[in-house]
């Protein structure tokens, strides 16, 4: 890595960085904060993830729905002994607020940040809001890097004291359009200073292999750690919805067919005809298949050169992370002791 490093060889020394640098295949998971001020929700979700991942992404008002702040939830997670990856979007904060929040996050013990542009507010529960988008994700990466390595704010003024030393992440959607440009945009993020990349959900392995081939041709896999996004599908309906409505998500028909097959014992009956127990059993069958598919995807991803880990997005289904990580043979997680400074 080209980044100026602390004397101990790490840019941030975060657990995620240590695991990645050690050459271990990393696992990150995702935690969606509640639409409330209830710290207990974070603690419960943390308990489900503890020991099964190297760091936990905390979403920043995902899909533009107001939730407990990523930094607030991150502070709770630090107290619980888990390592957060703070997601930071450009939708709701300008460059002043972003830098200020990051200083606070670092002071509270957070060491990883994922720089995102953010979903547009029209998707969320405050579509009347004025958005910010003062900067974009690539510029945000640059700002976080300059805070860490140049000890300067975006305006050029120097920090007066300790700099926040974040392990800087960025996202990439390999199958969004224009698809030919995606590896180059990834390159821009890395050039801007991203240390690790988490991708949009991958279900189509051949398409992802083609993407990785270009990534390798550009040498990007040697300049940043790339974590492939994976997630368990909950039902055929969810899979179809994502395939049709979420930009950049490719789901092969074969996977949808497998989920349909899992629900076959209950097929031919409408939702109203099924008893509560039958619905539950069908849902369990789908979920089981979703987890199996996810494990198989990880096993295939493990074989792709240049992939340094997986990011498991089990949306509001944190319980799925344990069986996935165990099933994929990624448990127990390595413990890489921090080096003395």
């Amino acid at each position: 890595m080209a980044d100026p490093m602390a004397p101990n060889g790490y840019v941030s020394g975060s657990n995620l960085e240590r695991v990645l640098k050690s050459g271990n295949f990393a696992v990150t998971a995702e935690l969606g904060p509640p639409q409330s001020a209830d710290a207990e929700v974070i603690r419960k979700k943390a308990a489900l993830l503890r020991g099964f991942c190297d760091a936990v992404n905390i979403t920043d008002n995902q899909t533009a729905i107001v939730r407990m702040s990523s930094i607030g939830a991150g502070a709770l997670l630090v107290r619980e002994g888990l390592e957060p990856v703070i997601q930071m979007t450009c939708r709701d904060r300008n460059r002043l607020a972003i830098q200020s929040d990051l200083l606070g996050a670092y002071a509270l013990g957070m060491r990883n940040v994922l720089c995102l542009t953010g979903d547009h507010q029209t998707f969320g529960n405050h579509p009347q809001a004025k958005n910010v988008f003062d900067i974009d994700s690539i510029q945000l990466v640059q700002i976080v890097k300059n805070l860490r390595d140049q000890h300067i704010f975006q305006c050029g003024d120097p920090l007066k004291g300790l700099e926040p030393r974040f392990f800087i992440g960025a996202a990439e959607s390999p199958f969004a359009h224009p698809i030919e440009f995606r590896p180059y945009r990834l390159g821009k993020k890395i050039k801007a200073g991203a240390n690790f990349i988490q991708t949009q959900l991958v279900f189509d392995i051949p398409a992802f292999e083609a993407f990785m081939e270009k990534v390798r041709a550009l040498g990007l896999h040697q300049q940043a750690y790339l974590l492939a996004g994976v997630g368990p599908l909950k039902s055929p309906a969810m899979a179809k919805y994502m395939k049709e409505n979420v930009p950049g998500i490719l789901i092969p028909q074969e996977l949808i067919d497998r989920l349909e097959e899992a629900g076959r014992p209950w097929a031919g009956k409408s939702r109203d005809e099924l008893t509560k127990e039958e619905k539950k059993a069908r849902s369990e069958a789908w979920k089981q298949t979703g987890i199996e598919i996810c494990i198989e995807l990880i096993q295939k991803i493990l074989k792709i050169e240049g992939v340094a880990g997986v990011h498991i997005m089990a949306i509001e289904w944190e319980e799925a992370v344990e069986p996935i990580v165990k099933g994929a043979g990624l448990y127990p997680r390595p413990v890489i002791e921090p080096l003395p400074v």
């Binding site: 939708r91 988008f133 996202a171 224009p178 945009r185 930009p247």
Partner: peptide, 13 residues
């Protein structure tokens, strides 16, 4: 929609 200077974002489809 996001006035990006380094687009396109992942929402381009």
């Amino acid at each position: 929609s996001k006035s990006l200077l380094n687009g396109p974002c992942g929402g381009s489809q």
